[in-house]
Structures are given as structure tokens and as C-alpha cells.
Computed example of a mutant assay.
Amino acid sequence: MNKINRVAIIGGTHGNEFTGVYLLKKFEQDLNLVKRPSFETLTLLGNPQAFKESRRYIHQDLNRSFFSQDLQNSTLTGYEEMRAKVIEKMLGPKGNSQVDVIIDLHSTTANMGLSILLGELHPFTLQLAAYLTSINPEVKVCYTQFEKESNLLRSLCDFGFAIEVGPVAQAVLNAELFQKTEELVYAVLDYLERSNQDTIEKKNSPLTLYRHMGAIDFPRNEHGEIKAMIHPQLQFKDYQPLHPGEPIFLTFDGQAIAFDGTSTVYPIFINEAAYYEKGIAMCLTEKQQLEVSNI
């Protein structure tokens, strides 16, 4: 692993996720909070127009706008499509980024606590994740990479990842989670500084990893309308085991619908408000213990 030279902290990729936006404002008022001796730290408000209007996005999800072919397509002129191109010019180009690490700050209405979302299982980010879980047992680590090229903002550099915190209502600040997110950002920056100084204490304990398996939609009728809700026994049970046959949905007339999988899974992003439009009721993960190699 080469030395870290530039780190980008991004908030407001979704305009109605206020935690990251107001953390950026705090950092920009006192850059010493995120300044470290051995690397430069940049801050960037991802979607300023959506934040101004307290909306997730204006035309489309900015965090799904970073496919290489889209960034190079001059016919795409929607607000987020253009904003993605601006961000890529500032941080990219994709595949040859001007920054070494991207920390993309998000919040969720789901009970995700403090989550680190990784797109690649690189030894460097895995060792970082292992360090963060060792100093704060609340931190959970998810591997969310899809098979095709990623269209997420954090994919602009090799060591990009998201911090996802919740539950927080959209366009609302939660003081406790704001402070926990802030502390987590400082821990990441301190780790990167110590990595540059080669003073990292190696972690030999296995890392608990939640690997993305897929997503399930709500049950729907012939018109595409939702006909069942998240079952009360599952609501807010992110990262907890869901066994075959256990209730997962509840119809409006009170009938339980059981999970028909064949193995125990660990749902995350349960009942995320922003995912209704995506046809996602929850994401399913499998829980793994991963031996993290030393950097």
C-alpha cells in the first residue's frame, strides 16, 4: 500500500441526509478537525441543489450516476448526471483518481447503527474496518459490491467506502448519531495518519463481515401496489438473524407472510424509506468471519 496523500470527505450525496451535510459545515468552519500532517483532506457537498430543497435528488439518484459510460456521455444533461461529471473532474477520473480515499457520509431510516459499506475486499480497507470494529464494537461492516461496474460515488477511487448511520428520519438531525459519525470520521483519519507513519498495531482477530446477497421487494398486487408491510417482529432488526419460516411481512388484514429462504440470513436496510421507489423492502446478507491479512 502506497502512502495516502489526499482524502475526500463527502456529505449530502443525498440532499435530505443531513448528518453528512452538517458535519461538512462543521469541518469547513474548523479545518483543523480533519487536517492530518501527512495528507490533505478535502470536503465536498455532493448534491447542493437537492440539499437546498431538502430532497434526496432533483432528477435521479446521484449515488447511482457514476457508471463510466454515463460520465462520458455528453447527451446526459439531468442535474445529477451533470453533477456526477463535475465531481468526477474534481476527484477522478474514474480509474485514475486524484484522491486516495473517499469517505462518503450517509444516513438511513433503517436501524443500521454505525455501518461501513465496502465495495472492494482490499487488504487495506479490510484492515481499516477491522481496526474500527476493534475500537468500537457498534461498527458493522458490509460488503456490497455488485457484479457489474459500480455506479456509486465511492467507486471513483480504489479505497472509497460509505459510512451509513441510522435510524435517522429524512431531512432530520439526530444529535447522538451526528456525534457518533463525527467520532468515526476522526478515527478513520487517525488510522490513515498512523498508516502513513507505519505505526499501526496489527489486528489478528477475525473481522465479522456482512456480505450482500440480494434484495427483496414488498409483496404487490396485480397493479404493482404494496399489499403488505414489514412484520413488527422484523422491524428495526437489522443485522439480526432471520430464519426460514419466520414472519417477514404482514398484510393489511393481519396475515403474516413467512420468509421462504432455505438458510439463515441477516437483513439490512429494513424498511428504508428511500428504497420504496427502488422496489426494495430490505437487503439480505450472509454473515462471515474473515481473517484479515496484515497490510
Rank of each mutant, 00 (worst) to 15 (best):
Y186R: 15
V141P: 02
P48K: 03
L105I: 15
H231I: 10
Q288S: 14
P232W: 15
S155A: 06
S195V: 07
I116H: 02
K278L: 15
D260P: 11
S155C: 03
N5W: 04
L152I: 08
H59Q: 03
L234E: 10
Y143H: 09
T109K: 06
G20E: 04
A8Y: 06
I4N: 00
L24G: 07
Q235I: 13
T251W: 09
K85I: 03
L114Q: 06
T181L: 03
N111V: 01
E183V: 15
M1P: 11
I4Q: 05
N174I: 00
N2M: 11
A162I: 10
F51C: 01
Q289K: 09
M213C: 12
L23T: 03
N16E: 00
C157P: 08
F178M: 04
Y79G: 04
K148L: 09
T125E: 00
K85M: 03
T199K: 14
E81R: 09
V185G: 13
N294G: 11
A129P: 06
I270S: 12
A258F: 08
F178R: 10
E81L: 02
Q72A: 11
A169F: 09
G12K: 00
F18A: 00
N5P: 01
D30T: 12
N111R: 09
P37T: 06
G245L: 02
R154I: 05
I226Q: 15
E291M: 08
N294D: 10
A84H: 07
L173Y: 05
G224D: 15
H231F: 09
L118P: 11
G119A: 05
D158P: 11
Q98A: 12
R36G: 06
L184T: 01
A258P: 12
N294I: 13
F252T: 15
K140E: 05
A281W: 07
P267I: 04
A187I: 15
Q60H: 12
I226G: 12
H243S: 03
I163H: 02
S293G: 13
V139N: 06
G166F: 10
L192E: 08
L118F: 10
E176S: 10
P167E: 02
N47A: 04
P48E: 02
D253P: 07
N221Q: 08
I58V: 10
A215R: 12
E164V: 10
V185R: 01
L156V: 07
E138A: 02
D61Q: 14
I10V: 06
Y57P: 04
T41K: 00
V172S: 08
I216H: 07
H212K: 06
M112T: 14
F249L: 14
T13R: 00
N294F: 12
S38L: 02
R220P: 13
T285R: 02
E149V: 00
A175D: 05
L31Y: 10
Y275N: 09
T262P: 04
I10M: 01
K203L: 11
N136L: 03
F236H: 07
N2H: 08
Q233M: 13
S97D: 04
T109Y: 09
H106G: 00
I135Q: 04
